[in-house]
Simulated scan of single mutants.
Amino acid sequence: MPKQNYIFTSESVSEGHPDKVCDRISDAVVDLFLAQDPYARVACETLATTNRLVIAGEVRGPKSVLEQVEDVARAAVRDIGYEQEGFHWRTLDFACHLHQQSADIAVGVDAAGAKDEGAGDQGIMFGYACQETPALMPAPIHYSHQILKRLAEARHSGAVAWLGPDAKSQVSLQYENGRPVRATSVVVSTQHGESVSQEEIRETVRRHVLEVLPPGWMCPEDQFYVNPTGRFVIGGPDGDAGLTGRKIIVDTYGGAAPHGGGAFSGKDPTKVDRSAAYAARYLAKNVVAAGLAQKCTIQLSYAIGVSHPLSVYIDTAGTGQVDEDRLADVLRQLMNLSPRGIREHLGLNRPIYARTAAYGHFGREPEADGGFGWERTDLVDALRRAF
């Protein structure tokens, strides 16, 4: 029987974390190509370190787009807020090593004759949903994200001028009878200006944490850690090198559900690492929203060049109201899980990815232009009818 009483912890990192800077730039490049050609192919990796950005990868799309990559990368750094001596959007050194996609990959992925478009790679992808929060996300990662989003809003608005772009949060929650009931500890580290006192930082952070956590959930004072090292002035890529794709657990469910291993950022939607993970979350969320289960984990698997998924696995952790095998069959009837089917159903061939790079790819509000469309719950009625 699953454990019912325990403490579970998840972390988040801000848009100014070195790895998230790289995710943002890689996704901005994806958006740049998709804005010019909805069927462009992009696999973009970014490295950031002290006053230096390096972009590499494979693309297929209008060659003229390559001339805009540097401007897009610098704009992303500026939007995040880096104008520091060790990392400044205007003065950093920039190198771009994007080149044409491998013809061997293209021939397997492209549709031709009677052959449908195949998956861009092999792999396994997971989606998850649960009833712990209104967003149907696990509570520890949800609140970790929200704390950093509040701090970022205060920084961007100028309400707290001394906040820097780089920050991390970590929330530990006590579960009783399988439900979160309170925080046992909260950790927040945030980059700050030279002159601000640690006491002011602590009280500012406390205010935002209290706004995020449900009433009465705040941890004991001796378990509230703010900038535990005592100083965090040097941050971002100046303090630590960043790479695309190193925060995959932050991007998904905070460790509360499995992860297939593939990163999302920098990849166009023919890459099932990204699109099939979005599809799995979409289906799992609709299952929970329809009341068919309190928790739902879905695994999809693919082979490079093959259009259909090799397997569809569903686990409702003993909370399901319907047969899981029957549920898998119904979901495959409601959604075409080929790479093309996923892209068309969720509207993924659009420049909607830079906004996903920080504060999680899941648990966000669907947007009018198709952003976070995988968070819709438009299959609820059909699922209820089917059962």
Rank of each mutant, 00 (worst) to 15 (best):
A139C: 08
G242R: 05
L173R: 08
H142C: 15
P220H: 11
A290R: 00
R340N: 15
R326F: 00
A183S: 15
V322Q: 02
D23C: 00
L98A: 06
K20G: 03
V288I: 04
R274C: 01
S64M: 13
V21A: 05
R385V: 02
L53H: 09
I201Y: 07
H145V: 01
A293S: 05
P237W: 09
E45R: 02
A317H: 15
S197D: 13
R384Y: 00
S311P: 04
T297L: 15
A56F: 11
D110S: 13
L98S: 13
P18A: 00
S197N: 10
L283C: 05
P309Q: 14
G108E: 09
D19N: 04
A159S: 12
A354C: 13
L331C: 02
G305N: 07
P220A: 13
G363P: 04
Y39W: 10
A183L: 12
A35T: 06
N51H: 12
P165A: 13
Q223A: 14
V171S: 09
D19H: 02
R274L: 00
L213C: 10
M125A: 10
P62D: 11
A276T: 03
P309R: 08
G373K: 03
R24W: 03
A56R: 05
A167P: 02
A48Q: 08
A257I: 04
R150L: 12
E70Q: 14
K63V: 10
A43G: 15
L34M: 05
A103H: 11
L151N: 02
E15H: 09
C44W: 01
R207A: 15
G16L: 01
D166F: 10
T316E: 13
Y313H: 13
A257R: 07
Q100G: 12
D166Q: 08
R150A: 14
G127D: 04
L53A: 11
G266V: 01
T50Q: 14
S189T: 11
A119R: 10
V322W: 01
S10F: 12
Q84G: 13
V226F: 10
R340M: 12
E70C: 11
R207C: 10
A368M: 12
Y143G: 06
D381T: 01
A73T: 08
G245V: 00
N349S: 15
Q294Y: 07
A241D: 06
S189Y: 06
A159D: 13
D23T: 00
R41I: 01
G178I: 03
A290N: 04
I298M: 04
I201R: 11
V77R: 07
V69F: 06
V330Y: 01
E203M: 10
V196E: 11
Y313M: 12
G193N: 06
S144H: 07
P140A: 15
L337H: 01
L213N: 06
V380F: 04
Y225K: 14
R376I: 04
Q68L: 13
V380A: 06
V205N: 09
R326Q: 06
S301L: 08
K267T: 02
T204R: 03
T377A: 03
G266H: 00
G236I: 10
P18G: 02
V160N: 00
V42N: 06
A386P: 01
